[in-house]
Amino acid sequence: MEQVTIKVEGISCMHCVNSIEGALKEQNIEGRVDLKAGTVSVNYDASKFNLDQIKEIIEEQGYHVI
């Protein structure tokens, strides 16, 4: 398992948290949003996903990965 923390712009409420965490969970990726820090900590299987794919999942929810 790989672990990475991604800085994301536009996270402002619990709806944002649920949107991102839910989208990751649909792909069997463990993600935890830190609302105050504006980050997403992700644990993922590098044999199934790469970092660009993780970022794309987040951006598809309407947020900007920095």
Rank of each mutant, 00 (worst) to 15 (best):
A46M: 08
K55R: 12
D52P: 01
V40I: 14
Y63P: 02
Y44M: 10
V65M: 02
E59M: 09
I54C: 07
A46E: 13
L35A: 05
L51I: 15
Y44F: 15
E60H: 10
I57V: 14
F49V: 02
V40C: 07
Q61V: 03
Y63F: 15
V40L: 15
K55F: 03
I66V: 14
I57E: 04
F49M: 08
R32C: 10
E26Y: 09
V33W: 05
Q27F: 07
V40E: 07
N28H: 15
T39N: 11
N50C: 11
E56R: 12
D45C: 00
E56K: 14
G38K: 11
I54F: 09
Y44S: 07
Y63W: 05
I29D: 02
K55Y: 02
I54G: 07
V33P: 05
K55H: 07
A37R: 13
Q27E: 14
E56Q: 13
V65P: 01
E59S: 08
K25S: 15
D52W: 00
L35W: 06
E60W: 01
Q27T: 08
Y63V: 01
I57M: 05
G62V: 13
K25E: 14
K25H: 15
G38C: 11
R32I: 14
H64V: 14
V33F: 07
D52L: 06
G31M: 06
N43G: 05
E56P: 00
Y63T: 01
T39G: 07
V42I: 15
H64M: 11
K36T: 12
A46Q: 10
S47K: 10
K25V: 13
V33H: 05
Y63A: 01
D45S: 00
K36Q: 10
I66N: 14
Q27S: 11
E26G: 09
A46I: 11
Q53R: 10
E56I: 02
E56G: 02
Q27R: 14
V40A: 08
V65Y: 00
K36E: 12
N43W: 08
V42F: 09
T39A: 09
E59I: 00
G38R: 12
I29G: 01
T39P: 10
D52M: 06
Q27P: 03
Q27A: 13
I66D: 13
V42R: 02
K48P: 04
F49P: 02
F49D: 02
I57N: 05
V33N: 04
H64L: 12
K25T: 14
L51E: 11
V33G: 04
L51Q: 13
E30V: 15
I58L: 03
I54L: 15
V65T: 04
V40T: 11
Q61G: 03
K36N: 10
N43P: 00
V42G: 07
Q61A: 04
I29H: 00
K55A: 04
D52T: 07
N28I: 04
V40M: 11
I54E: 04
V33L: 06
V42E: 06
N50H: 11
N28Y: 12
I66L: 14
L35E: 05
G62Q: 10
K36Y: 09
R32A: 12
H64R: 12
D45N: 05
E30I: 15
